[in-house]
Design a protein around this nucleic acid. Structure first.
Length: 437
RNA sequence: GUGGGUAUAGCGUAGUUGGUUAACGCGUCAGUUUGUGGCACUGAAGACCGUGGGUUCGAAUCCCACUACCCACCCCA
């Protein structure tokens, strides 16, 4: 305590045992839903060659320009902690020759990401993403399946109040036309637009559509709409997607304003918005990135994906109707009186643990009373007290902590198995009672 | 990077015309209760009142600065 205490870095968090069950609930929902859709997990490094993100996420994006944690390692290599999940996955797919395997490749990941931003609700410097990628299909059926998967994940977690927004931002060809038209339109308003939007006019006029400044968004209201500029192929793709979503009764809103901030997106883009979780309301974002694999040196392959922010899912889940799984509680607490008995409880605990149940005993040196209080506190289902007499007699009383019912068990090799039977009965009966209710 | 808010035990809070030893609830530990927990009662530990200055006989309380956290802009998941 003499030294100044060391605190965790800004924008990071500790996930304590009280919270970790909520994380696990969300993680399990993500993982099992993805697996139900035929996705396999992929894990990639926490840091990558900086060039990977510059080339995929995009040179001019905020993420690359001002949010990356980049270090120069021994030697000349520059590495960056991953600011998002897709780039690393695509790099790995190319590097491991997975483009030669059967298409589509369907992959999911659950990973921490890092961006140097100013923290606020739903935005941290180290955060966690769940993402899914489908590689090797240009069919709009894939877009629809991916969106359905995202919707299912949210539903299974218990997040109900989300809105799906979709848009198409076209392919490089038709987008060029559109950007030209946008520039022409916004150029008329150079005296009213905000400063950042003026600079966007040159670099990326589509971002002006996203600006929340009242003046800019007022001007943007009458701006040309991308959907009017889509080429035949892009338009067909988008119409087909809408058709499938309609057929599957997935509600959506076409929102021509959604423009993703990462450069690799093409054609379909979408967001799931959750309004009651603060300003950072996008709980899931994704879209197509048909040009990315080629850009990263792989064969020209269409692909698409989405990412969800686990922290945001968690906020939404707490506000929604999520039911969080609890950690399994202790099956039996073995109290001891005296040193010989302590050794005995240690042996018994191990035998119970060997058959897959949770057993604890006194490793603190507490009085019997205190041991029992502790057993109660950790919600032990059963308890047993062992003293010299019991060891002599070779029989101990196992008590059901809920009902107070006591069973006598032999203190020999059969103990664990017999206790297992009692516990199984208890759990089955408990389920029956539950069903009757 | 720019705003706004907050800062008192592990957690949640009370504490303003400045006045002895900073209070309460929860939690933790122990005892009542060396062969049985929950309830109850008793007690204990735990706070340099965010940090540093200033005003004052006297500051958790007033003033200034700093820091941290939260929220929002921006950006995005």
């Amino acid at each position: 305590m003499a030294e100044p205490s060391i605190k965790r870095p800004k924008g990071t968090q500790d996930i304590t045992p009280k919270e970790v069950n909520k994380w696990q609930t969300v993680e399990v929902a993500c993982k099992t839903t993805a697996e139900d859709y035929g996705f396999s997990e992929i894990r990639t490094p926490t840091f990558e060659d900086t060039k990977l993100f510059v080339r995929s996420v995009g040179d001019a994006t905020d993420v690359v320009q001002k949010e990356m944690y980049t270090v120069t390692s021994k030697g000349d290599s520059e590495f960056t902690l991953k600011p998002e999940g897709t780039a690393g996955v695509i790099r790995a797919v190319i590097e491991n020759g997975m483009l030669n395997e059967a298409f589509p490749q369907k992959l999911f990941y659950l990973t921490q990401c890092f961006r140097h931003e100013k923290p606020q609700a739903g935005r941290l410097r180290e955060f966690h993403q769940f993402g899914c990628e489908i590689i090797g299909t240009k069919s709009p059926a894939a877009d629809a399946d991916l969106i359905m998967l995202a919707a299912d994940v949210l539903e299974r977690i218990g997040i109900v109040e989300t809105k799906l927004n979709i848009n198409s931002i076209g392919c490089p060809n038709c987008r060029a036309e559109y950007i030209k038209a946008l520039r022409e339109y916004f150029s008329q308003y150079t005296d009213t637009l905000c400063e950042t939007c003026i600079s966007r006019l040159e670099k990326n006029p589509m971002r002006i559509l996203d600006c929340k400044s009242p003046i800019c968004s007022e001007v943007a209201k009458n701006a040309p709409v991308i959907l009017d500029y889509l080429c035949d192929e892009c338009k067909e793709h988008f119409d087909a997607l809408k058709g499938i979503l309609d057929a599957m009764e997935i509600e959506y809103r076409v929102n021509p304003r959604i423009v993703r901030g990462l450069d690799y997106y093409t054609k379909t883009v979408f967001e799931f918005i959750c309004d009651n979780i603060g300003a950072q309301a996008t709980v899931c974002g994704g879209g197509r990135y048909d040009g990315l694999i080629r850009e990263l040196g792989g064969a020209d392959t269409p692909a698409l994906g989405f990412a969800m922010g686990i922290e945001r899912l968690l906020i939404a889940a707490k506000r929604g109707r999520a039911e969080f799984i609890d950690r399994a509680s202790c099956d039996i607490y073995l109290a001891s009186i005296g040193q010989d008995a302590l050794l005995k409880t240690a042996q018994l605990a191990r035998s119970v643990r060997d058959i897959g149940f949770i057993a604890e005993y006194d490793i603190v040196g507490r009085s019997l009373n205190a041991q029992m209080k502790y057993a109660n506190k950790i919600k032990a289902k059963f308890s047993a007290v062992i003293g010299d007499d019991d060891i002599k007699k070779g029989i101990i009383k196992v008590k059901n902590m809920e009902t107070g019912k006591i069973d006598n068990l032999r203190l020999d090799d059969s103990f664990a198995e017999k206790f297992g039977d009692i516990l199984t009965d208890y759990i089955l009966n408990d389920d029956l009672d539950f069903d009757c209710l």
